[in-house]
Design a binder for these strands. Sequence first.
DNA 1: AATATCATGTAACATGTTACATGATTGG
DNA 2: CCAATCATGTAACATGTTACATGATATT
Lengths: 205, 205
Amino acid sequence: MSRADQTQTAVLGALSVLPMTGYALREEIRAVLGHFWSESFGQIYPALAELERQQLIERRGADGSRSSVFAITPAGTARLRELLSAPVQPVRPRNGLLLRLFFGRQLGPEACRTLIKDARAQAEAQLADLAAARAESQEGGEHPQDSGYWMLTISAGEHAARAAIAWADESLAALSTVEQQAPPSAGSLPESHPDTPHPPAKEHP
Amino acid sequence: MSRADQTQTAVLGALSVLPMTGYALREEIRAVLGHFWSESFGQIYPALAELERQQLIERRGADGSRSSVFAITPAGTARLRELLSAPVQPVRPRNGLLLRLFFGRQLGPEACRTLIKDARAQAEAQLADLAAARAESQEGGEHPQDSGYWMLTISAGEHAARAAIAWADESLAALSTVEQQAPPSAGSLPESHPDTPHPPAKEHP
DNA sequence: AATATCATGTAACATGTTACATGATTGG
DNA sequence: CCAATCATGTAACATGTTACATGATATT
């Protein structure tokens, strides 16, 4: 699957659940797929235009005039299955948090701790979001056929978030053992004695 | 931090550990930061040129002539700390595996199971890689000052990989309970045509 | 009547990847 | 000498984001 097709996959997939407008599409993608997927405005409309040109979706004047609801066609459903069957596009990782921690000596332990605490808080928030999504999906039950699959994605997010929290706690503990190490001397200064504002930390045994 | 600066951060960071050529830089980034970061060739050289122009790094004719080793300057170290202190760039998620599973009904349980098994295998492989990296970092010990921080990134990868494995096992079990559900009718059949926004459900008997 | 939201789009920009071109050095 | 690898770069392409322009519809 070429990369461009990924947007088409998401759009076709969403329309396979329910016909909607481009605007609603973006809202739904943000709200429902947001945990693991994102599309920007500038991609959705071109994708819709292209899909319509290929007759994989069709536009229906919803009731009177303006707002056009897009619905998937049989050919579109076939194409969706084809796209979903294509190998998963490997993602090039770019984790800004870990990049900063890797060069953590330049930042010093205090700043690193802050970064980790922030990440932990984010994971907690994520967990709360997912709990809400899980409840909604299980109760509302408008799409019982899909909800089993949707649960898989929610569960994936929960596992990842819990792992992040566990890692953060472990890391905060580990960081206290390097606390006494000062960051290396500033670029323009010769090495001065370590004058970190941190009180002496406990050595690890 | 603008996005472009992220490459500069990685390059400056790597050179802060050890001066090296652009080629070696790419190899090191791939080998050492590979678990959480990536840079493509086409970005490294322009970044090096720009950093040299700003005198944040300097080029040294290594021994005789050709291969130029880049070394960070004091100003470069200062800039690195500035970059590392900037807020982490939020990443827009794009998880192709979860996208496929979310629309799993179109694929059917068997294909989904395969996807999950593949993901599990990948996580296992990742875990093995990280174990090797951990061993190397702990024994080799060429950079004792940094190794504590490096361990944090390895640990993050391990937590994530273990979470992925646990999720996969759980999901494979869950999927067996939806096993009997057939994927919805093929694209050419009338049920999936938009005339009926919700294709009739084939409930399990 | 004024404001907020829905709705569709485009253009400019930013970012990132791939393939290619070029040549030096090294090891067999 | 030949092949592999090291080394530096560029250009074309692919992808993705942001800001803007426009106007309808609904709400207050």
